[in-house]
Computed example of a mutant assay.
Amino acid sequence: MFRSILVAVDASHAAHNAVRRAGLLAARFEARLTLLQVLAPSVLRLPYGLFAPALGTDARITRAQLALGRAAAGLARDHDIHASVVVRVGDALEHIRLLAHEADLLVVGAKTRNPLHDSVLGTRAARLMQLARHAVLVVKSPAASAYSRVLVPTDFADCSEAALRLALKMVSDRSVEVFHALSTHRETRMRAANVPAQAILDYVGSAREKCLRRLRAATALANGHAAGCSVGHGDPACLSLERQKAMAADLIVMGREGQGQSVAGGMRMGSVARQLVAKAGCDVLFIPRTALPYLEADARPQRPAMGFDALASRRESEWMRREAAPMSSACHDGKAFQGSGATVLPC
């Protein structure tokens, strides 16, 4: 299921929990594990509003590499796994997003700065969840052991079915509960149209029974055994949070159909995903539609193994070629390759 896991690390306690949880998952799925820390570029204020790189950047990088090395050594000791270490300097969101393209799962710790900032722009975990094209695990609690109880809110979309299959692989089927919240829109319209109360009750009961049958069929199709099923009536986010507390779930697995290209456009206030990240008392795993080909073992495309250092260099070269002005063949050191009527320059 997961073959490559990337962990975004900093000096916070939330990042420590993310590293421990990623180690447990890497051991369970036998996945490659990479620890990434992005340092903010230090600047020195000069007269006339100018800035210059401050001294000591190399020392900060060395300290970060040593800290990540100790964390990797702890993972090797506790879980018998090897973790690669990568340190970058620059914009954290951009570096994490670029390197996450080559990972099946991005693991981040849930760390907030202040309520006003997070309510307007969202937490870093929420922004990464919006921009990432692969599965994102937001770790909110200490990782003492493997997950034992999983809640899967579903809307019967393809991503929700993938979330259910993943949840059944992470724990036993008896520890997974699938939940669906029925909308109240039609009931509200029926009341506005003065439909008799008994007819409304009959409709709600019929809709609940149909939903339960559909949930049982989905769980049986996913694993051959029926997991727990429950149906609520009302706001999906509030009901999911209540159900998580009632069953003491330590993980929520949720599919997400949309995959936005900007924080402002995708992470709208009041969305179910954002409310779960902000208010859930357990870890939250999101699976966007774009992650489905990589999570399905049979449909997964074969990609050549590539180190994260080589990946970053390749992406930087591609960016430079896009930004640079067109050059003649005499300005390029390499030779051009002819094929299919096109000229391709070596990377």
Rank of each mutant, 00 (worst) to 15 (best):
residue 233 H to T: 00
residue 61 I to H: 04
residue 55 L to D: 13
residue 331 C to W: 12
residue 147 Y to I: 10
residue 210 K to P: 01
residue 48 Y to N: 08
residue 67 A to P: 00
residue 37 Q to W: 06
residue 33 L to R: 02
residue 323 E to C: 14
residue 226 A to R: 06
residue 206 S to E: 14
residue 266 G to E: 07
residue 265 G to E: 14
residue 141 S to M: 05
residue 144 A to V: 01
residue 85 V to N: 10
residue 4 S to I: 05
residue 59 A to F: 04
residue 257 E to K: 04
residue 347 C to F: 11
residue 125 A to H: 04
residue 81 I to P: 07
residue 243 R to S: 08
residue 32 R to W: 08
residue 341 G to S: 07
residue 28 R to H: 09
residue 261 Q to C: 08
residue 234 G to M: 12
residue 296 E to Y: 00
residue 338 Q to G: 10
residue 22 A to P: 00
residue 153 P to T: 04
residue 288 P to W: 00
residue 159 C to S: 08
residue 99 L to Q: 10
residue 311 L to P: 10
residue 285 L to A: 03
residue 152 V to A: 11
residue 67 A to Q: 11
residue 325 A to P: 08
residue 139 V to H: 03
residue 330 A to E: 12
residue 293 P to W: 00
residue 129 M to F: 02
residue 67 A to L: 14
residue 307 G to M: 01
residue 300 R to E: 13
residue 39 L to N: 01
residue 245 K to S: 15
residue 5 I to F: 13
residue 122 G to E: 06
residue 88 R to M: 13
residue 226 A to E: 13
residue 182 L to H: 10
residue 298 D to K: 14
residue 192 A to Q: 15
residue 283 D to Y: 00
residue 82 H to E: 09
residue 269 M to K: 09
residue 119 S to K: 09
residue 8 A to F: 01
residue 238 C to W: 14
residue 162 A to F: 00
residue 200 I to W: 09
residue 151 L to G: 01
residue 323 E to D: 04
residue 226 A to D: 09
residue 266 G to H: 05
residue 269 M to N: 05
residue 133 R to H: 07
residue 300 R to M: 13
residue 231 V to L: 03
residue 96 I to Q: 09
residue 78 D to W: 04
residue 311 L to N: 03
residue 256 R to H: 07
residue 131 L to W: 00
residue 117 H to G: 02
residue 129 M to D: 07
residue 28 R to G: 03
residue 96 I to E: 09
residue 161 E to D: 14
residue 196 P to R: 13
residue 277 V to M: 15
residue 155 D to N: 02
residue 116 L to V: 03
residue 136 V to G: 05
residue 81 I to Y: 13
residue 7 V to A: 04
residue 50 L to K: 13
residue 283 D to T: 03
residue 112 T to V: 01
residue 217 A to I: 06
residue 228 G to P: 10
residue 161 E to Y: 02
residue 166 L to N: 01
residue 258 G to E: 14
residue 312 A to D: 15
residue 252 I to R: 03
residue 197 A to F: 10
residue 210 K to H: 15
residue 125 A to G: 04
residue 151 L to F: 03
residue 337 F to W: 12
residue 54 A to V: 06
residue 128 L to T: 08
residue 30 E to R: 14
residue 116 L to T: 01
residue 50 L to V: 08
residue 244 Q to Y: 05
residue 317 S to E: 11
residue 13 H to M: 11
residue 212 L to Y: 13
residue 167 A to N: 01
residue 328 S to N: 12
residue 7 V to D: 02
residue 117 H to M: 07
residue 219 T to N: 05
residue 217 A to K: 10
residue 156 F to V: 03
residue 191 R to M: 15
residue 289 R to I: 03
residue 243 R to T: 11
residue 307 G to F: 06
residue 200 I to L: 10
residue 178 V to Q: 04
residue 118 D to E: 15
residue 284 V to T: 04
residue 179 F to A: 01
residue 289 R to T: 09
residue 107 V to C: 07
residue 122 G to N: 05
residue 253 V to K: 02
residue 150 V to D: 03
residue 196 P to Y: 06
residue 334 G to P: 14
residue 326 P to A: 10
residue 247 M to A: 08
residue 19 V to Y: 02
residue 139 V to L: 05
residue 85 V to E: 12
residue 84 S to H: 15
residue 317 S to L: 15
residue 180 H to W: 15
residue 283 D to W: 00
residue 249 A to N: 06
residue 141 S to G: 00
residue 289 R to F: 00
residue 244 Q to I: 12
residue 255 G to R: 04
residue 294 Y to G: 07
residue 154 T to W: 11
residue 199 A to Y: 11
